[in-house]
C-alpha cells in the first residue's frame, strides 16, 4: 500500500488492467503527454493521441469495444463529451438491448468534471445526472484515490459503457492544467482526504452501484458524491458541535444508483439532504428523493444543487456550487 494522488491512483488501476489484458487500450486528446508514463510502459500502439474529433473517437471506442478491445477513451472535460454524445447515447448504451443481450460494448470514458476553480460555465459542469439517466450507461464519480482506483478496475472489467468522472478539485494534475494552480496567488478549497490517500497495489476493485457510509448518524443523512462528500463531512463535523448527529453517505456510482442503501438510510434517519453538484432538475437529486421516500413517505427531504449556469466570477461561483454554508442552511429546516 502506498500514498497516491487521485490521478496516480487511477493510472495505477489502468496500468494493472493493461498488464493483464492486451485488449485494454487508451486513447484521446493529448493522451501521450497526459499519460506519458503509460505511453512509456505500453508504447504508442496502445496509448495513442486522437485528433480533436469527439464524434469520431467516441464512436470508434464503441466500434473497438464491439470488435473485442476494451478501450479507455479520454475526454479532457465532461463538457466536451457532449460534442460526441451520440456515440454514447445512441450507440454504446443501446448495444446490449439491440443485440438481445448477445453483444456488449465494454468501454470506459474517462473525463474530468466539476467546478470550484473559476473556469466558467462551459468547463465546470457535472452532467452526471443527464448521463446517468440514459439506460445502458453506467456512471461513476469517486471521491478519493482508493475508490478511484477500485472503480476504474471495475469500470474496465464491466461489460458495458462506463463514464468515469474525475473531479478537478480532487485531481491536482488537472487543476494545474485548468486552474493554473501553480500560481501562489490563487487558492482553492481542496479536500485533503480526497486528493491523496492510501491505495493498495494492485488496487482493490470497488463494486459499481454500491454506496458507502462514511459517517454514521441518527438525525439526518447527507447523501453526496465526488467533492460534495467532503463538503458533507465538514458540515457533519460542524453539526456535531451543535448536537446534531449527521450521517454521510458517498454514492460513488450515479447509475446504477444504490437505491436500497438510500432507502435504508432514509428509514433510519427520517431526514435526507442530497448534496449534488449537478444541476437541480432532471437529475440525480430527484432520484435520491424517490429512493429516500420509497420506504417511508414521511421522510423529510432537501437538496443542495447547482441551480444555474455556473458563473465565472469566483465569489458567485463559490456561492452557486454546493458548499458547507449551503449544506448547513439546508439542514436547518429539515430538523425543525
Amino acid at each position: 500500500m502506498s500514498t497516491l494522488r487521485f490521478s496516480q491512483a487511477v493510472d495505477l488501476a489502468v496500468r494493472h488492467a493493461m498488464d493483464e489484458d492486451d485488449g485494454v487500450v487508451v486513447f484521446g486528446e493529448d493522451v501521450p503527454m497526459i499519460r506519458r508514463e503509460l505511453l512509456a510502459r505500453f508504447g504508442p500502439a496502445r496509448v495513442r493521441p486522437t485528433p480533436i474529433s469527439e464524434s469520431a473517437f467516441l464512436g470508434a471506442a464503441v466500434g473497438a469495444s464491439l470488435g473485442g478491445l476494451r478501450p479507455i477513451v479520454e475526454v479532457q472535460l465532461v463538457d466536451f463529451l457532449t460534442v460526441g454524445l451520440s456515440a454514447l447515447v445512441n450507440e454504446a448504451a443501446k448495444v446490449d438491448t439491440f443485440s438481445g443481450g448477445r453483444w456488449q460494448a465494454p468501454m470506459v470514458v474517462r473525463a474530468t468534471c466539476g467546478g470550484g476553480y473559476g473556469d466558467g460555465g462551459q468547463h465546470e459542469q457535472a452532467l452526471w445526472g443527464m448521463l446517468g439517466g440514459i439506460p445502458g450507461l453506467t456512471v461513476v464519480v469517486p471521491s478519493n484515490p482508493a475508490d478511484a482506483a477500485g472503480l476504474m478496475l471495475s469500470a474496465i472489467a464491466h461489460d458495458g459503457p462506463v463514464v468515469f468522472l474525475e473531479h478537478k478539485l480532487l485531481s491536482d494534475m488537472w487543476l494545474e492544467w485548468m486552474g493554473g494552480s501553480r500560481r501562489k496567488s490563487v487558492d482553492f478549497d481542496l479536500p485533503a482526504s480526497g486528493i491523496e490517500g492510501a491505495v493498495d497495489d494492485p488496487p482493490v476493485p470497488v463494486p459499481i452501484g454500491r454506496a458507502t457510509v462514511l459517517r454514521e448518524g441518527r438525525d439526518i443523512a447527507l447523501i453526496s458524491l465526488g467533492v460534495g462528500v467532503h463538503r458533507c463531512l465538514q458540515a457533519a463535523q460542524l453539526l456535531a458541535n451543535d448536537g446534531v448527529d449527521a450521517a454521510v453517505m458517498d454514492l460513488r456510482t450515479v447509475a446504477p444508483l444504490d437505491r436500497t442503501a438510500i432507502t435504508e438510510m432514509a428509514e433510519s434517519t427520517g431526514r435526507v439532504l442530497a448534496v449534488d453538484e449537478d444541476y437541480t432538475a432532471g437529475g440525480l437529486s430527484g432520484e435520491i428523493a424517490v429512493a429516500a421516500c420509497a420506504g417511508r413517505p414521511s421522510v423529510r427531504f432537501g437538496r443542495v444543487t447547482t441551480e444555474s449556469t455556473i458563473p465565472y466570477a469566483r465569489d458567485r461561483e463559490e456561492a452557486g456550487l454546493p458548499n458547507v454554508g449551503r449544506i448547513l442552511d439546508a439542514v436547518k429546516p429539515l430538523l425543525e
Partner: peptide
C-alpha cells in the same frame, strides 16, 4: 492579472 491570481481558470 492572471499571474496575480485576479483572473481565474485557463487563460
Amino acid at each position: 492579472l492572471w499571474a496575480d491570481g485576479l483572473i481565474s481558470g485557463e487563460l
